Amino acid sequence: MGQDKGTSQPSEPSVWRDPRFYQIASLSTLLLYGLLVLHFDISIWQIVITISTAQLMQYVGTRYFHLLFFDPKSALISSLSLCLLLRTNDCAVAALAAGIAIGSKFVIRWKDKHIFNPTNLALVVILASGLGWISPGQWGQVAWFGFLIACLGSLVVTRAARADVTLTFLTFYVGLLVARALWLGDPFTIPLHQIESGALLIF
């Protein structure tokens, strides 16, 4: 007898296969560790305002550009990254950075894809305007090593689809640091310390 195909239900893909959930978990864990253990120089209000502004901009962009549904994951990743990287004494600047990051995804596009990395663009604008700064010295050895493992795990989760871009950037970046140390006669502990930056891993 033939199998009744009409009664079988196709299995729906699990939402947890989305690698963005892994990124959100990694960034959230690092932020909590930074607040509770490393005492990051960032207020709870700045975190709340950054995340809230990002979600609001994502919602406004979704409605204005008539997207099918509101997806908070990408905006949450960008806002968590801003919380980890951006330092400012003004919560309005944090809100501005979140607005620039998420707004750029909807406005600055080419062939239906956003051109710039939202977080990086916001950081460049804020740093260039002198409204904020990045604190590379806030990371401890344990946090750096733990987040390194998380980043490597992220490559596995995403099946290393864009690993060539990441590895090329890291190769050239490390090569430039080593070349600079050799040119200036600096000890290799200096480029090694520059490489051990949580900001670099997030980037």
Rank of each mutant, 00 (worst) to 15 (best):
A101T: 04
S74R: 07
A75G: 12
S104G: 09
N120I: 09
D112C: 02
I77Q: 00
H114Y: 14
L152W: 14
R63T: 05
T88F: 01
L86I: 04
I100Q: 01
H66L: 09
L67M: 12
S78E: 01
A98Y: 00
A94W: 00
T62K: 12
L84E: 00
N120W: 09
L121P: 07
N89I: 03
S78T: 13
L67I: 06
W133K: 09
V157W: 08
V93G: 11
A97E: 02
D112S: 09
A122T: 07
S79D: 05
K111H: 08
V142N: 11
A75N: 11
R63I: 07
W133Q: 09
S129T: 10
F70S: 06
K73C: 08
Q138H: 05
L127T: 03
A150I: 10
P136T: 08
G132F: 04
Y64K: 11
G137S: 14
S154T: 15
A92W: 13
F69Q: 13
N120L: 10
G130L: 05
I100R: 05
G99C: 07
V125D: 00
C151S: 15
W110F: 12
F69R: 12
T119H: 10
R63N: 06
T88E: 02
A101H: 10
K113G: 02
A94G: 02
P136K: 13
F70Y: 12
L148P: 08
W110P: 03
G132N: 06
A122P: 01
K105N: 03
R87W: 01
A92R: 06
S135N: 15
S129V: 04
W133M: 08
F116K: 08
R87P: 01
F147I: 09
I149Y: 15
V156T: 15
Q138G: 07
H66T: 10
G61H: 13
A94C: 06
L85S: 04
L148N: 11
L123R: 04
A97P: 02
I100L: 03
K113A: 06
L68V: 08
C151G: 09
